[in-house]
Amino acid sequence: MSTTVSANPSDARTGLTLALPALMLFTGVVVIPLAMTVLLSFHDWGQYKGIEPVFILKNWIEIVSDPYYAEMFWRTFRVAVLATLITAVFGVPEAYILNRMQGPWKGLFLLIIIGPLLISVVARTLGWALLFGGNNGLVNKLLMTSGLIASPLRFMFTETGMVIALAHAMMPFMVLAVWTALQRLDPQVENAALSLGAGSFTVIRRIVLPQIMPGVLSGAIIVFSLSASAFATPAIIGGRRLKVAATLAYDEFLNTLNWPLGAAVAVLLLIALVLIVVGSNALIERRYQEMFR
């Protein structure tokens, strides 16, 4: 048993002193800029007059009332949900299979599957652009020669392409989350169920799945929030016309130069995500209180 040096006033002071540099950094370069951005979203902007430091609701009213923005946020949400579903449907079984592998195979395939996480997202999306590439992209060729489709499908500049590329980009997060949950599982429990006469499918459905559900859900939250705020993949696969929240904010900032409106889009995205993530975390925690103790 190790006893920690704690509840000791001088310790608290040392602790705070050690954390102070980082705290100052974060206050100066995270908290203040974010506050400035929120403020910026209430400023006025005109083609010729630039940014006017006033306090008006113009940008917010525009975002809320103009169906153009509603469509964009709705697409962001739809694409993120679909990508999340795909990662769950394929990532969960894969994590399970991975976990049942032995020795060196396990490590090798884990590296192959979660490694892409660290590979430049531009390079990965470029790969999808090459695979999709117009009518004679590799994917279409493959699908047609295998006889699954008669005429080429459109992937580039479509939501389908966006969802596939996003699912690929986010898959490692789901596999990792489920993998971590599986690691905590007692392998003897599965054997116990088998010894009681359960088939392997029943074991998965009744024993394994309920136990790893918190892992799946927390993976889903990560995938959803990252998909909804993704920029590179929608920008490259979706092109200039099929915009999502992140690419919209980018355009407002660097092309239209309407910073206040761009700031409003970004702040709305941030608020929506925080609400969704915090809300679903709370729900999951309540549902699985037992397991989190």
Binding site: P33, T37, A228, S229, A246, F253, A266, L269, L270
Partner: peptide, 11 residues
Amino acid sequence: PHVVLGIAFLR
């Protein structure tokens, strides 16, 4: 989201 951070830093 990194878009938000990017915007905040730019500003």
